[in-house]
Protein backbone atom coordinates (compact mmCIF):
# COMPACT_ATOMS: atom_id res chain seq x y z
CA UNK A 1 0.00 0.00 0.00
CA UNK A 2 1.00 3.58 -0.51
CA UNK A 3 0.00 6.30 1.91
CA UNK A 4 -0.09 9.87 0.64
CA UNK A 5 1.60 11.62 3.54
CA UNK A 6 0.26 15.18 3.81
CA UNK A 7 3.76 16.57 4.23
CA UNK A 8 5.98 14.05 2.47
CA UNK A 9 3.94 12.74 -0.44
CA UNK A 10 3.45 9.08 -1.33
CA UNK A 11 5.23 6.69 1.02
CA UNK A 12 5.26 2.89 1.16
CA UNK A 13 3.34 1.26 3.99
CA UNK A 14 6.53 -0.41 5.15
CA UNK A 15 7.66 2.96 6.53
CA UNK A 16 4.65 3.04 8.84
CA UNK A 17 3.43 1.36 11.96
CA UNK A 18 -0.27 0.72 12.35
CA UNK A 19 -2.18 1.30 15.56
CA UNK A 20 -5.90 1.03 14.87
CA UNK A 21 -9.16 2.94 14.87
CA UNK A 22 -8.70 6.71 14.98
CA UNK A 23 -11.25 6.75 17.80
CA UNK A 24 -8.23 6.05 20.01
CA UNK A 25 -7.63 9.80 19.84
CA UNK A 26 -10.75 10.34 21.92
CA UNK A 27 -9.32 9.35 25.27
CA UNK A 28 -11.99 9.87 27.95
CA UNK A 29 -11.73 12.18 30.93
CA UNK A 30 -10.36 10.33 33.96
CA UNK A 31 -12.64 12.27 36.28
CA UNK A 32 -15.82 11.49 34.37
CA UNK A 33 -18.31 9.83 36.74
CA UNK A 34 -18.66 7.05 34.17
CA UNK A 35 -14.90 6.86 33.54
CA UNK A 36 -14.60 3.11 34.14
CA UNK A 37 -17.19 2.33 31.50
CA UNK A 38 -15.96 4.94 29.06
CA UNK A 39 -12.42 3.73 29.31
CA UNK A 40 -13.54 0.14 28.78
CA UNK A 41 -15.35 1.11 25.61
CA UNK A 42 -12.52 3.37 24.47
CA UNK A 43 -9.84 0.79 24.96
CA UNK A 44 -11.61 -2.41 23.99
CA UNK A 45 -14.64 -2.00 21.74
CA UNK A 46 -14.31 -1.42 18.02
CA UNK A 47 -16.67 -0.57 15.18
CA UNK A 48 -14.46 -2.71 12.94
CA UNK A 49 -16.32 -1.64 9.81
CA UNK A 50 -16.28 -3.44 6.48
CA UNK A 51 -15.85 -0.29 4.44
CA UNK A 52 -14.43 3.11 5.28
CA UNK A 53 -12.24 3.07 8.35
CA UNK A 54 -10.45 6.01 9.91
CA UNK A 55 -7.28 4.67 11.37
CA UNK A 56 -3.98 5.68 12.90
CA UNK A 57 -0.65 5.10 11.18
CA UNK A 58 2.70 6.28 12.52
CA UNK A 59 5.46 7.28 10.14
CA UNK A 60 8.17 5.65 12.18
CA UNK A 61 10.71 5.33 9.36
CA UNK A 62 10.07 8.91 8.41
CA UNK A 63 9.05 12.12 10.09
CA UNK A 64 7.35 10.49 13.12
CA UNK A 65 3.98 11.98 12.28
CA UNK A 66 0.90 10.15 13.40
CA UNK A 67 -1.60 10.16 10.57
CA UNK A 68 -5.32 9.57 10.35
CA UNK A 69 -5.85 7.56 7.19
CA UNK A 70 -9.30 6.93 5.77
CA UNK A 71 -9.16 3.56 4.06
CA UNK A 72 -11.69 1.08 2.79
CA UNK A 73 -11.19 -2.24 4.55
CA UNK A 74 -12.79 -4.11 1.65
CA UNK A 75 -10.67 -2.65 -1.17
CA UNK A 76 -7.79 -0.95 0.69
CA UNK A 77 -8.50 2.23 -1.24
CA UNK A 78 -7.28 5.28 0.67
CA UNK A 79 -9.47 8.32 0.31
CA UNK A 80 -8.03 10.75 2.83
CA UNK A 81 -4.90 11.27 4.90
CA UNK A 82 -4.59 13.87 7.64
CA UNK A 83 -2.08 14.71 10.33
CA UNK A 84 -3.44 13.16 13.50
CA UNK A 85 -2.43 16.22 15.49
CA UNK A 86 -4.66 18.40 13.31
CA UNK A 87 -7.50 15.94 13.76
CA UNK A 88 -6.98 15.89 17.50
CA UNK A 89 -7.00 19.68 17.70
CA UNK A 90 -10.12 19.83 15.53
CA UNK A 91 -11.84 17.34 17.75
CA UNK A 92 -11.22 19.64 20.64
CA UNK A 93 -8.55 17.74 22.49
CA UNK A 94 -7.02 20.36 24.68
CA UNK A 95 -6.20 20.83 28.26
Amino acid sequence: MIIEHPLLGPRDMAEFVYLGDAALINRPDWQDPDAANKYYEYQYLRDNPAGLHRELWYHEQGDRSWLVVTRDTLTHEITNVELARDVAVEEGRSR
Partner: peptide, 9 residues
Protein backbone atom coordinates in the same frame (compact mmCIF):
# COMPACT_ATOMS: atom_id res chain seq x y z
CA UNK B 1 1.14 9.27 20.13
CA UNK B 2 0.42 10.93 23.45
CA UNK B 3 1.98 14.17 22.27
CA UNK B 4 0.33 14.38 18.85
CA UNK B 5 -2.99 12.65 19.40
CA UNK B 6 -3.94 12.90 23.07
CA UNK B 7 -2.50 16.22 24.18
CA UNK B 8 -1.82 18.16 20.98
CA UNK B 9 -1.87 21.48 22.81
Amino acid sequence: FARQCLWPD
